[in-house]
């Protein structure tokens, strides 16, 4: 219970859904400001979690996704110390699933191993966008092949102001946060559930997958200030 791969943080006040700054009073303009920052594994290029893993249980896939082999992980939690984003969580006890049937298409994790966001590698392999991209009602997330200059994600990153979280740490995340006036992102590929697919996935395999997440308040305020 209580494990989160993706956390939507409030950038602003000290509490969830609260802004920082002051109300407009006595004719002054207010300074209230707030935005949301979905925060999951950033899939770092220079990933410290990969470098510290003593048994190669955490590794970078060919396509750039940082993944954990749950059959290999010894549960030393060195990678949790290494990850500057606190993106990793540990199975302190035997995991419970809601609903109880299990974890669906996502690989199951036993007690005593570390887990984190996989960019839905099980979906990406089938040519589908990650679930968070498909399910975001504001189309705030864009996912795609960053090696391809013509992919939506490459175009967005080329055109708008972007930043990577904690870029001073030198981890070079493959996740970019985009700011600015823009049209909503477009899903990269199909919306289907992976079990609905035909045998042959129609999409070609991505060479290097890069995700972007637009952070910028709710959908109502796409120009909103970032942290």
């Amino acid at each position: 219970m209580g494990q989160a791969w993706n956390r939507v943080l409030t950038v602003g006040g000290d509490h969830v859904d609260t802004p920082e700054g002051s109300y407009p009073e006595d004719g002054d303009g207010g300074t209230l400001e707030m935005s949301y920052q979905p925060t999951a594994c950033q899939h770092c290029e220079n990933a410290p979690c990969v470098k510290v893993c003593p048994v190669n249980a955490t590794f970078t896939r060919e396509d750039g996704i940082v993944e954990i082999d749950y059959d290999k992980c010894i549960g030393c939690r060195y990678c949790m110390a290494a990850c500057p984003y606190n993106a990793r969580v540990f199975n302190w006890e035997d995991p419970q699933h809601v609903p109880e049937e299990g974890t669906g298409d996502v690989e199951e994790r036993p007690q005593g191993v570390v887990e984190k966001c996989t960019f839905c590698s099980h979906r990406v392999e089938e040519g589908l966008d990650p679930s968070c991209v498909v399910n975001c009602p504001a189309d705030a997330r864009i996912f795609g092949d960053f090696d391809d200059e013509n992919s939506t994600v490459s175009k967005y990153v080329a055109e708008y102001d972007t930043h990577q979280l904690l870029d001073d740490k030198g981890t070079d995340p493959k996740t970019y946060y985009i700011q600015g006036e823009m049209s909503p992102g477009r899903p990269w590929k199909g919306k289907e559930l992976e079990e609905e697919l035909d045998e042959e996935p129609t999409a070609e395999e991505p060479a290097d997958v890069t995700g972007d997440e637009s952070v910028s308040g709710a959908a109502a305020n796409p120009t909103g200030g970032d942290d």
């Binding site: 219970m1 209580g2 989160a4 956390r7 920052q37 984003y85 606190n86 969580v89 540990f90 942290d227």
Partner: peptide
């Protein structure tokens, strides 16, 4: 090393312990 985190925006990081009731903060 562990006292403070680099990104400390609310609500924070899920603790992963057992959820002991309404009052427990996860």
């Amino acid at each position: 090393g562990y006292e403070s985190v680099n990104i400390d925006a609310a609500p924070g990081i899920s603790l992963g312990g057992e959820y002991a009731g309404v009052a427990t903060d996860i």
